[in-house]
Amino acid sequence: MQTKEFRIKWGMVIDIDKCTGCGACMVGCQVENNIAPMTKKDPYNYLQAITKDRDDASNKLRTMTWMNVYELTNGEKFPNHEVAYLPRPCMQCGNPACVPVCPVIATDKNEEGGIVSQIYPRCIGCRYCMAACPYHARYFNWWDPLWPEGMDKVLSPEASVRPRGVVEKCNFCHTRFMTAKEEARINGEDPENLAEDAYIPACARSVRPVPSPSAI
């Protein structure tokens, strides 16, 4: 199969043997990327008496988890029961199945670095890409994002929020990549030739010790 080649390709390796399924990477991802917790009641909906409640996080078909930890078991009873955990971000495929199916080119893999982009205002919400993705790494916004009172204060400027009706997915913490390039530029380094750990996505950062303050 033909893959798109780039001079620079960012990648992440996950040691599945070490994963204990703690879910810290999922939390790190949600905080970094402004993924709203799902709430049943909408205080801004003045027609609550005649409308149905929103889905809450118990409906796993409609939750947003750009980074999702799957639990894999052999289905046996104790003592033969074995379990493994599989964290699943967007795989940033070499030849992504989601890209050619998009009718509006809202998703593409065309930037040096090899990250599959998703432009939310451009997305029309047809969900063709979700059907095409073999990893179920894409999510549709069934509801407008809503942060409980006070929690909106911790929104990150690093990721734009998505409205109802568009598809979103892991962007490999792309803003961290951009800020790493900015820092390189101001320090007179080549932004196209960053060090291997110049930028680390939030999921990986939240489960590994911080080496030095300057590398955060």
Binding site: D108, N110, G113, S117, S160
Partner: peptide, 10 residues
């Protein structure tokens, strides 16, 4: 310069 989406968008 490249005009890829993620050059300017986040």
């Amino acid at each position: 310069q490249v005009n890829a989406c993620y050059v300017c968008h986040k």
